[in-house]
């Protein structure tokens, strides 16, 4: 039964991580920016939801309002940080450092404005549980799986079948031609940042409901997410989402045979194994 419980826990965490990973992938494949500050948006979302809950709002209000606020934050990051750097022809390394700097600022600001210690939600998501064939799941975990899979499906559909989705993929495929054919790449980048920031806010809140909030955990989450993005094949939303789940499930199962502090090591072991077998990633385009 422990095996089954670990498997299900891995699946839940993996779904949340999957949303972090595929939203990061969306930004990276379109803008070519290694947007590590994405982890800051993820973390901020949880704290904003916590404050709204403290102010007496039902959690559902946070789940709706916070992604909108984070979308705006994403646009601000693009317009005030990444766009000016691009106009000054900054190299990828410079942009990465800028993004890291922003992440540090967001995390420290959160520690100052809220608390450097763990914060828990008072809501009942965590204590209401159901039991299924010997596995216990709380409501936050169930919501995480349902909402994450829905977001993945909706994003995949949107990128394939909507005008905005096709435009995003066109800009990702050939930004130079996008400029020449009036697809407005810079506007599209801001749109992608808004979308990805709104998406990453959701697991930021749902994981917070379940496990509470800490200012600095987002970094490890994003690191694991980027492993999934690369192992899944850069540019593939499906690869990022599925590999996130596989990695997290394996990480959880490793608890059966070795202590928990090895789990990050296990992640990278899986990563190396993936890279040796499929160096371009599992779902890379031919």
């Amino acid at each position: 039964m422990l095996l089954l419980q670990l498997l299900v826990n891995g699946l839940v965490t993996g779904c949340a991580l999957g949303v972090v990973a595929f939203s990061f992938s969306l930004v990276y494949s379109t803008t070519k920016i290694f947007h590590v500050a994405h982890a800051g948006v993820y973390t901020l979302a949880g704290y904003l939801a916590w404050s709204l809950a403290r102010a007496g709002m039902p959690d559902i209000v946070g789940l709706i309002v916070v992604p909108v606020v984070c979308a705006g934050f994403g646009v601000v990051i693009q317009r005030l940080l990444y766009d000016p750097l691009a106009q000054r022809r900054a190299t990828h390394l410079v942009v990465l450092i800028a993004s890291l700097g922003l992440l540090a600022i967001v995390q420290n600001a959160i520690a100052v404005l809220w608390s450097p210690d763990i914060l828990h939600f008072d809501s009942t998501w965590r204590v209401q549980t159901i039991k299924l064939v010997g596995v216990t799941l709380n409501y936050a975990q169930i919501a995480t799986v349902v909402v994450s899979v829905a977001l993945y499906g909706a994003t995949l559909f949107a990128t394939r079948h909507t005008g905005i989705g096709k435009r995003i993929r066109a800009v990702a495929s050939n930004p130079f031609l996008a400029e020449l054919t009036r697809l407005h790449p810079r506007r599209t980048y801001a749109m992608v940042m808004a979308l990805a920031s709104a998406l990453v806010a959701v697991p930021g809140m749902l994981v917070g409901f379940d496990l509470g909030l800490q200012p600095y955990t987002g970094t490890t989450v994003l690191l694991t997410g980027t492993v999934a993005v690369i192992a899944g094949g850069v540019g593939s939303l499906t690869g990022a989402f599925l590999v996130s789940i596989v990695v997290t499930v394996l990480q959880n199962l490793s608890l059966l045979v070795m202590p928990g502090q090895w789990s990050v090591g296990i992640t990278f072991l899986i990563f190396v194994a993936f890279m040796l077998v499929r160096p371009r990633g599992l779902f890379a385009a031919a």
Partner: peptide, 24 residues
């Protein structure tokens, strides 16, 4: 018509035309 880079290689032919037609 730029040299050698005039299409969106990762999109289908129809998607290439759709996305440019929508804007132009």
């Amino acid at each position: 018509l730029p040299e050698g880079r005039g299409i969106f290689p990762d999109l289908s032919v129809a998607e290439n035309l759709d996305v440019v037609a929508a804007a132009n």
